[in-house]
Design a protein around this nucleic acid. Sequence first.
DNA 1: AATCTAGCCAACCGCCGCTGT
DNA 2: AACAGCGGCGGTTGGCTAGAT
Length: 323
Amino acid sequence: MRKPTSSTATAEAAAPAAAAKSTPCCVKVGLKRGPWTPEEDELLANYIKKEGEGRWRTLPKKAGLLRCGKSCRLRWMNYLRPSVKRGQIAPDEEDLILRLHRLLGNRWSLIAGRIPGRTDNEIKNYWNTHLSKKLISQGIDPRTHKPLNPQSSDQPKPSSSKANHLQESLKEPIKTASSGLEETTSGSAHPVISNKENEYFQNNSNAHLDDQYHTDHFIASRGYTSLLNYDGSFGMDQRGNQRLGNGELAEDINSGTEDVFSFLNSLINEEAFQQHQIFNEPNVNSAPASSDPLFPIAATAFGLATVWESTLTPSALDQNESK
DNA sequence: AATCTAGCCAACCGCCGCTGT
DNA sequence: AACAGCGGCGGTTGGCTAGAT
C-alpha cells in the first residue's frame, strides 16, 4: 500500500538537504498535491497557451502554481491538452489497443502514440480495468496474449461469437499502412497489411502468427510501416526511438531503419499529414496524385516506402539472396 | 437509510535514458 | 568520463462513485 503521509513527511524532512545539493522537482515543501482545481487548470492552460509546453521545472513558478513540474506536465498531457479526446473508447480503438498490445506489450506511450487523442494513462487504465479482465474471461493471458492454459489450446474455442471475434482478432497480424488502408466495419480507416506480407506469413514457416517473436520481428523488420500511426502520420516516441519489442528487436530496427524514419519524420509536418488524404483513402496502392498540395512530401514518403518494400523486407531480402 | 464492496481513473512515485556541462 | 538535471515512462495508489446488501 502507498503511504502518502509518511512518504511526504520523509520527503519534506529530507527536502532541505536535497535542495542544498540540487533542486529536484519532486521536493514537496509547500507544494500542493491531489486533484486539480478549475482555477489551477486555467492558470496552467493559459500559461502554456502563451509560452508553450516544456521547461516544466520552472513552469509552475512562472504560471503562479504551487505544483511541481511533473504534476503540471501530467495534468497538461493527460487532461488539458486540446488534442486529448474525451469519452468512451470506441470498438475500433479497443481493437487497435489489443493488437498493439500484443505487439508492444505494456508500452503505453507507444500504443497511445498510434491512437490519436488518447493518452498513455487512459489506455493503461482502460487496459487494466477492462481489457485485461476481458482477455482473462476469454481464457487469454493478457500479458502474452496466449491461452491461459496451454493444454487447452487444442480445445475448441469459446462458443460465444464475441469470444470468437476476440480470439480471431488477436491472431490477425496488425494492420499497417505500408501499402494501403481498408475500411473497418465501423467505417474508420485502418492501415492494412499487404498481400505481399500475407504471402510472407504463408510461405515462411517461421512466421506463424502465434509466435510472438516472429510476429514482432516481422513488424519490426518492416519498421516504416509499424511506425505509421493510426491516423497515417509517422510516429516515433518523443525521443525519436523505436521501442518495439525487446531490446534485441529495438537493435534490429535501429540498425537498419532509424535514419530513414528520422528523415521521414523530419519531412512530414504531422498536422498537415493528418489532414492529408494519402493514408486516409481506402486504396492507396498507387502513387500520390501530383495535384495534391502535399505531393512532394507524400511522394517522398511513398518513394522511400517503396524502396524499402522492394529491397529490405524479409521477402525482398529472400528474393535478393536467391538471385 | 446506512454500510459495504468493487470499479474507475486521476494523480503520484521511482526509475531510466538523454543531454549538457 | 563523470555527474547532474530534466523529461518521460510504467507501475501503483487512493479518492470518488455507483451498485449491492
